[in-house]
Simulated assay, not measured.
Amino acid sequence: MRTYALTDSWTMTRRELAHWARQPGRLVVGLVFPVMLLLMFGYLVGGGRGVSGDYLDYLMPGMLALTMAFGLEGTMLAVTQDLDKGVVDRFRSLPMADGAVLVGRSAADMLQSAVGLAVLIVMGLALGWRPQGGPGAFLGAVGLLLLFRFAMLWIGIQLALVAGKPEMVQAVQILVWPVGFFSNALAAPESMPGWLGTAVAWNPMSRTATAVRELFGGPGADPGHLWAAVAWPVALLAVFFPLAVRKFARMSH
C-alpha cells in the first residue's frame, strides 16, 4: 500500500511539473519576484534599522526566509482549481492513494522553492554577499529554509481546501503578508517598540531567519534560535499536514 502511495504521489508530481512547460511565465515570475524584493530593499528602500555591520549580510538570510513564506498562492490556486473544475473528482474514480494529489502538488512546489533559493543565493553572491559558516552550515541553513517552506506550504494547502474556490484564494493568501513583514527579515527587533520587537521575535519566520544568520555567520545571529527554527515548522506540520490530508479525504467521499 505504501508503495502505491509513493507511486501515485510521484505521478501527481510529474503532472505538476508538466504544467511548468505549459506555463513558464508563472514560474519565471515566481523566481524573479524575490530578486526584485532583494534589490528594492537592499538598494532602493534602504532599511537596516538597528542592524550593526553590513546590511546585505543581514538582509540576505531575511530575504531567503521571506521567499519561503511567499508564493503560496500558486499552490493554493492549483488545489482550488482542481477542485472547482472537477479534476479531483476524476482522480477519485481511479485506484489512487488518498492525499497523492496533495503530496504531488507539494513536491512540485518544493522543487520550485529550491530553484528559487538557488536563484536568490546566486544573486546575493553577485551583489557581494559571502556566507561565512562553511559548507556544512550552508547546507544546514538551506535545510532550515526548506523546512520552513514545507510547513508554510501545508498551511496554504489547508487554507485552500477550506476556501474551496479560486476566487477566495487571494483573500486568504493576504494573511501571509503580515507573517512575512511582521518579522525581523528586514530590520532588527531591537529597533522596534518593546512590545512589537517581542512579538516579532516570536514569529516563526523570525526564528528561521535568525538561525540562518547564525549559520551564515552574519549580523543578527543568535545561537538560541536554532532549536526554535526546527521546532516551529515541525509543530506547524504536525497540525496542518494531517488536517489537510483529512480534509481532502473527507472531500473524496
Score class of each variant (00 low, 15 high):
residue 190 E to V: 15
residue 239 V to C: 07
residue 137 A to E: 09
residue 228 A to D: 12
residue 78 A to T: 02
residue 34 P to R: 10
residue 200 V to Q: 11
residue 35 V to L: 08
residue 79 V to T: 13
residue 24 P to K: 02
residue 183 S to P: 05
residue 202 W to Y: 14
residue 46 G to K: 13
residue 85 K to M: 14
residue 139 L to E: 05
residue 2 R to Q: 09
residue 170 Q to A: 15
residue 107 A to H: 02
residue 122 V to E: 12
residue 42 G to H: 07
residue 78 A to C: 00
residue 217 G to F: 00
residue 132 Q to L: 12
residue 133 G to W: 01
residue 36 M to N: 00
residue 230 V to L: 14
residue 65 A to H: 05
residue 143 G to L: 14
residue 188 A to R: 06
residue 181 F to V: 15
residue 106 S to A: 14
residue 242 P to I: 07
residue 89 D to F: 04
residue 195 W to D: 06
residue 42 G to C: 12
residue 151 A to M: 13
residue 80 T to W: 02
residue 193 P to Y: 12
residue 121 I to P: 05
residue 109 D to Y: 05
residue 167 E to M: 09
residue 64 L to T: 06
residue 62 G to V: 08
residue 234 V to L: 15
residue 40 M to Q: 02
residue 159 L to Y: 04
residue 89 D to L: 07
residue 48 G to W: 11
residue 211 A to T: 13
residue 87 V to K: 00
residue 1 M to H: 14
residue 248 F to E: 11
residue 189 P to V: 14
residue 222 D to A: 07
residue 15 R to I: 03
residue 199 A to N: 04
residue 152 M to K: 01
residue 155 I to Y: 08
residue 199 A to W: 09
residue 169 V to Q: 02
residue 174 I to S: 12
residue 143 G to W: 08
residue 123 M to Q: 08
residue 197 G to H: 15
residue 166 P to I: 10
residue 188 A to W: 04
residue 40 M to D: 01
residue 49 R to V: 04
residue 140 G to H: 02
residue 27 L to W: 08
residue 251 M to A: 09
residue 207 R to F: 14
residue 111 L to K: 01
residue 78 A to S: 04
residue 226 L to W: 08
residue 76 M to S: 10
residue 176 V to T: 12
residue 135 P to R: 06
residue 97 A to G: 09
residue 250 R to A: 15
residue 187 A to P: 02
residue 94 L to R: 09
residue 155 I to Q: 07
residue 78 A to P: 00
residue 203 N to F: 08
residue 237 L to H: 03
residue 119 V to D: 03
residue 18 A to E: 13
residue 155 I to T: 11
residue 211 A to M: 09
residue 244 A to D: 01
residue 172 V to C: 00
residue 149 R to Y: 05
residue 11 T to C: 01
residue 93 S to T: 04
residue 80 T to H: 04
residue 182 F to P: 02
residue 128 G to F: 11
residue 130 R to P: 04
residue 44 L to W: 12
residue 10 W to N: 03
residue 217 G to P: 07
residue 68 M to R: 08
residue 6 L to Q: 02
residue 65 A to R: 03
residue 203 N to H: 11
residue 113 S to D: 10
residue 223 P to Q: 11
residue 20 W to T: 00
residue 36 M to Y: 13
residue 253 H to F: 07
residue 49 R to H: 05
residue 128 G to L: 13
residue 76 M to Y: 01
residue 58 Y to E: 09
residue 178 P to M: 07
residue 96 M to V: 14
residue 160 A to Y: 05
residue 149 R to C: 03
residue 76 M to W: 01
residue 66 L to R: 07
residue 1 M to S: 15
residue 144 L to N: 04
residue 127 L to M: 11
residue 162 V to H: 03
residue 74 G to I: 08
residue 120 L to H: 05
residue 152 M to Y: 09
residue 131 P to D: 08
residue 112 Q to L: 14
residue 66 L to C: 04
residue 187 A to E: 15
residue 170 Q to T: 15
residue 141 A to G: 15
residue 190 E to M: 09
residue 94 L to Y: 11
residue 43 Y to E: 12
